Amino acid sequence: MFSYDLKEQNALGEKEFHVLKELHWVEDDFTLILMGPTGAGKTHLSVALGVHAVQQGFQVSFVSMAHLMYILKTREHIKKSNTRYKRIIGSDLIIIDDVMYMCNC
């Protein structure tokens, strides 16, 4: 059972939430970007969607942007990074947390 308390935020409505939890966007290879200020619940929602996707039989990878950059830089030299890279690219859903890590805002 997938549930998420929509009362804690105001950016996502019932209709959008229903569309997200149906996971058709994963099957259709759409990119979903969750944006908002710190504490808005982006990571919480993405983890919940990831767990729901796993329960529905999807292969899911969750990685922070900082760790993804490390994997990409070291995959040719470190076996563990290459293994992780292969798992990520083989996933149906890749959740990248803290994307703003790359922003020079």
Rank of each mutant, 00 (worst) to 15 (best):
E14I: 15
V54P: 01
H67S: 11
L72Y: 08
L49T: 04
E76W: 08
V51A: 07
E22T: 12
H44Q: 09
F62P: 00
E14Y: 09
F30T: 01
F58H: 07
Q56C: 13
V51T: 14
G36R: 10
H67L: 09
E22N: 14
L12H: 01
G50M: 03
G57D: 10
L23M: 15
L34A: 06
Q56Y: 07
F58L: 11
H44G: 02
G41A: 07
Q55A: 11
W25P: 03
S61G: 06
A40M: 09
S64V: 03
F30E: 14
L68W: 02
K42M: 01
L32V: 13
L68I: 08
L20W: 00
G50Q: 03
A48I: 04
L49V: 01
A48T: 02
E16Y: 11
N10A: 15
Q56K: 15
F17M: 15
N10M: 12
K21C: 07
A66E: 14
L34W: 03
K21Y: 00
V51N: 08
Q56E: 13
D28H: 13
H44F: 08
Q56T: 08
G41I: 07
E14W: 07
H44W: 07
S46E: 04
H18G: 04
L12F: 00
E27C: 06
S61N: 08
G57I: 14
S64R: 04
K79T: 10
E76G: 08
L12N: 03
V51L: 09
A53S: 06
G39A: 06
H77Q: 13
G57W: 13
G39C: 06
L49W: 00
P37C: 13
P37S: 15
K73C: 11
P37T: 12
H18I: 10
A48F: 04
T38Q: 04
F58G: 00
K73W: 07
Q55M: 11
G36A: 10
T38R: 10
A11Y: 13
V54S: 05
